[in-house]
Design a binder for these strands. Structure first.
Length: 604
RNA sequence: GGUCCGGUAGCUCAGCUGGAUAGAGCAUCAGCCUUCUAAGCUGAGGGUCAUUGGUUCGAAUCCAAUCCGGAUCACCA
């Protein structure tokens, strides 16, 4: 598992599991005079149908101590009760499990202590972390795959912030290279000077069209050449179009004025388009890096690495690193003509990030097809002695596929980001209108609601799955607003707010001593886990931990809501208790959803 | 071929630092709106946790082998 600097400790104050661990260790020492660590025994949540909240699993301990589980459980239970500050109300041995019932008193204290703002936020770790995500090319618009990347990057940044770190969000834009020249060339040849203004098209889409156009024309030319008798290889080599693109790249590298101007113009269209999309989905960056600035970086470092003996030079002048002792291959870091390759600039940028921000940790949100590359990058940075290189982490995520298979631009099956966003909005509008809940909404409010719901549905859909797994994007399923979805959780929040609007005089909680009902306690148990959940999600670089958690919380609240009345509770004490549970649930839902980059509506 | 990742209900996914009877959602079926928003709740059916061995008091979880799917092993980025 990733152990991330600054979040390596799973210990939370006010977390009953930590408390149980501590008390069990102390008890064991007092009973048997032996030191144990929390790894020697497990604390589990008690399963449904059993009595109790958390259990101590005794098998391993009983073996080590040479005592029967029953005997051990008996002694431990007594000791825990004695030390437990009245937190342990009851305990029961079932097979090898010591099931502890935590007193209602504790759960009500949780409620009291968690009323403060920012419940779940960790104290500052003093660590600085950079998260790099969304690394688009400037030759086509963003698609569904980018969205998974962007949402993951945004969410993990927010999670790490909440876990007490200072976080810098960054992106690297691939704004140079042959693929960029392709769209430039096609525009030059076929556009008649079309611009986003004259065509009324979004800049990134316009440029993307010319990238496609290039490939179409290129294919046509290849086919013609082959029809005239050329082999495929010859055709590719002799393609006038491709040669022109290569020429353009050379001109670009030689700072040809005209090419640079065209490049700047078209890239600015693309950035305008990207910014619109970023803005729409509510993400931003603290720092944007551009490959046109970084692609020459790293050469100096290669020199240094040569002197240090980290790299070696082959006869032809190319520079390599031998990673076979680490189980990898030999890897080129500088071409024989002295130009940088992909990894050269990445090394350079890694150092630059450190120098600019003095980061303790450097996280890259990149698809899993680059697992090998990232492994190599980290190793090289470590060998070069770039500070904190051991804290380079790759948040690797699987590809987004469609039920019909992979998205292929050639077959036109790529799901465009802007399209899918729009579709989500109209789905949200459709559902809302069908349910007839729009009375009393101003048009502006409605628009905002549809955006909140549509984006909520999409973000949740993409974030609820473990990042490292590839995922299937099922268009039908993604517009479903029932069950394990963003809108389900948003709806739960809106329901709570509706109750709270009807009752604004919430009194200070009086620890009433009234016995907690099953539905009440279930929520409190979940709420108590929130700080720990955030830390776990951060340490594992996995926002789906938060998504699953907040879904379970919402589900529990809905059961509670159906079974018990808040405003017409059986007593004033119960009413106040439930109001407090409701407030806190709403707070945690809002907070957790924010960590996922999702807003919650007051009404829906 | 080497390395890495995945395979859990019809579908999409949790659970994987070993623990009790493997959980959700969707879909199917049966109930629940004169009481705080039914985008909700309650219940039913649905499983060879890819296969086979091993470790263990105990394996979906750890190990090994095999099968299936994917990624990667560029003087591309």
């Amino acid at each position: 598992m990733t152990s991330l600097i600054g979040t390596k400790s799973y210990f939370c104050t006010m977390y009953i599991v930590n408390l149980i661990q501590k008390l069990v260790k102390e008890s064991l020492y007092e009973l048997f005079g032996k030191e144990f660590s929390e790894k020697d025994f497990q604390i589990n949540q008690v399963k449904q149908d059993f009595k109790g909240d958390y259990s101590v699993v005794l098998f391993a301990l009983s073996k080590k101590l040479g005592i029967s589980p029953a005997d051990l459980g008996d002694k431990l239970a007594k000791k825990l009760k004695e030390k437990g500050n009245n937190y342990f109300e009851e305990s029961e041995m079932v097979k090898g499990f010591l099931n502890l019932t935590i007193s209602d008193n504790y759960w009500q204290e949780v409620l009291k202590n968690s009323q403060k703002e920012n419940f779940g936020k960790s104290d500052s770790t003093g660590k600085k972390i950079m998260v790099e995500y969304s690394s688009p090319n400037t030759n086509k618009p963003l698609h569904l795959g980018h969205l998974r990347n962007i949402f993951l990057g945004w969410s993990i940044s927010e999670i790490l912030k909440f876990a007490g770190n200072e976080v810098f969000k960054s992106s690297i834009t691939n704004d140079r290279g042959i693929h960029i020249c392709k769209s430039m060339l096609a525009w030059q040849k076929f556009s008649n000077g079309e611009t986003p203004e004259t065509s009324n098209k979004k800049g990134d889409h316009l440029v993307g069209e010319y990238y496609v156009k290039f490939n179409d024309e290129y294919k046509k030319e290849i086919n013609e050449l082959m029809a005239a008798g050329a082999t495929e290889q010859e055709a590719e080599k002799n393609s006038a179009l491709m040669n022109e693109a290569r020429e353009m790249l050379l001109k670009w590298e030689n700072n040809d004025e005209e090419v640079k101007q065209l490049w700047q113009k078209m890239n600015s269209w693309v950035y305008e388009g990207f910014d619109k999309t970023y803005n729409e989905i509510g993400v931003s960056f603290d720092k944007k890096y551009y490959e046109s600035n970084t692609y020459l970086l790293g050469k100096e470092i290669v020199k240094m690495g040569l002197e240090k003996g980290v790299f070696y030079k082959k006869d032809d002048g190319s520079v390599w690193i031998d990673l076979t002792p680490d189980g990898l291959d030999e890897k080129l870091v500088l071409r024989k003509d002295g130009t940088a390759v992909y990894i050269t600039q990445d090394i350079g940028l890694a150092l630059q990030k450190y120098e600019e921000y003095k980061i303790d940790s450097n996280i890259y949100v990149i698809g899993d097809e680059q697992n090998y590359h990232m492994k190599v990058l980290k190793l090289i940075c470590e060998k070069l002695g770039i500070p904190n290189a051991e804290n380079i982490f790759h948040l690797s995520y699987g590809m987004v596929e469609l039920p019909s298979g992979k998205m292929k631009s050639r077959e036109g099956t790529v799901v465009d980001a802007d399209d899918i966003i729009k579709e989500m909005y109209s789905t949200a509008a459709m559902h809302t209108e069908q349910l007839g809940k729009i009375s009393g909404f101003e048009p502006e409010e409605l628009k905002e609601l549809y955006q909140t719901l549509g984006l909520g549905a999409m973000k949740f859909y993409l974030l609820r799955v473990d990042p490292k797994k590839k995922m299937i994007f099922n268009p039908e399923e993604s517009v479903d607003f029932h069950g394990f979805t963003g809108p389900f959780i948003q709806y739960t929040y809106a329901r709570i707010k509706s109750i709270l609007r009807k009752n604004e005089n919430i009194k200070n909680l009086n620890l009433s001593g009234l016995p907690l009902l099953k539905e009440e306690k279930e929520i409190l148990v979940l709420l108590e886990q929130y700080p720990h959940i955030v830390i776990t999600a951060g340490a594992e670089l996995n926002p789906s931990v938060v998504a699953n958690y907040v879904y379970n919380l919402a589900k529990s609240f809905n059961s509670f809501y159906a079974a018990l009345s808040v405003l017409n509770a059986e007593s004033e004490g119960k009413k106040q208790l439930r109001l407090h549970i409701s407030v806190m649930t709403a707070n945690v839902i809002k907070s957790a959803m924010k960590l996922l980059g999702i807003r919650v509506p007051e009404r829906m």
